[in-house]
Amino acid sequence: MVKKVAELVQGIGEGKEGALARALTLVENRGSGYRELLDEIFPLITPCPIWGLTGAPGVGKSTITNFLAGELVEKGEKIAIIAVDPTSPFSGGALLGDRVRMMDLAGKPGVFIRSMASRGALGGLSPAIMDAIALFQAFQVDRIIVETVGVGQSETDIVALADSVTVVMMPGTGDDVQTIKAGLLEIGDIFAVNKADLEGAETLAGLLQSMISSRTEEGQSHQPPVLKMIASQGNQLEQLLQEFFHHQEYLNRGELKEKKERMRGEMALKMHLQARFQDLFLGPLLGSEEWEQALKSITGREKSPAYWAEKMIPGRD
């Protein structure tokens, strides 16, 4: 296994797509040797900007990604795209269909697209996503675009992992006052109202604009722009690219960049701790004799779940 890891690390260092792809699978599967792998590639990492796109299914995220990546590759950049789709809670399988929309990028040199299922994460992002980012940075990409379906936890997760987040919305899909209040406003550095030729686009954009204005504190230099666009016709996409660059510059000017780095480190650390907790504590307990005993006692109203948790993993309070 050590040999395998060494080969992968070497391949990544040499810029081999095949090695990177296998390494991504290894971290995604938490397969044997994945910790060594992450440890080995850690010194190879060259940080690069990470852009996030989030929004409900069908709002046009992949169309936007298709354009952004296309433009950046034209400029000579090496781009990684991580497209995350939810895992089916029933079968554990997933349909990863974002490549359908990225026709222009298919097979293009300089673009590496990886489709990831959210797997175990409860509505959030796969814990492996932080590791995937590390692998891509070790692969020396110039920029990473992460595309996530904006449901549940993943919306807030994306703030922690991306430098700049665009929230994509469209009229007539329940992107209204309620959902905006539910936290989207806090995570967007840029807002894109796609399919702006549809009824209700003006209202949605206006609503966003006024909520952003009232939220932005005085003296805060970045006020998230609201772009109305028709991505399928290429309308305003160049503008979005520029806004991403603006936000990047804004981050580079202040201390925010470091803050982002810290957030990302913290999230990665938490995810790995959770994984270790899973492996070392929860995993062995599941289905064990003690587990069955505890369940019997809980359903029999003998002892509380709190009691059992402490008994199973004793420690200070």
Binding site: A94, V100, M103, S115
Partner: peptide, 19 residues
């Protein structure tokens, strides 16, 4: 295949063998 627990990547139409 999805319902059998696999992760299925669909390419869409009109792909070349290289792609």
């Amino acid at each position: 295949l999805r319902d059998a627990g696999m992760e299925v990547i669909y390419t869409g139409l009109r792909r070349t063998p290289e792609q």
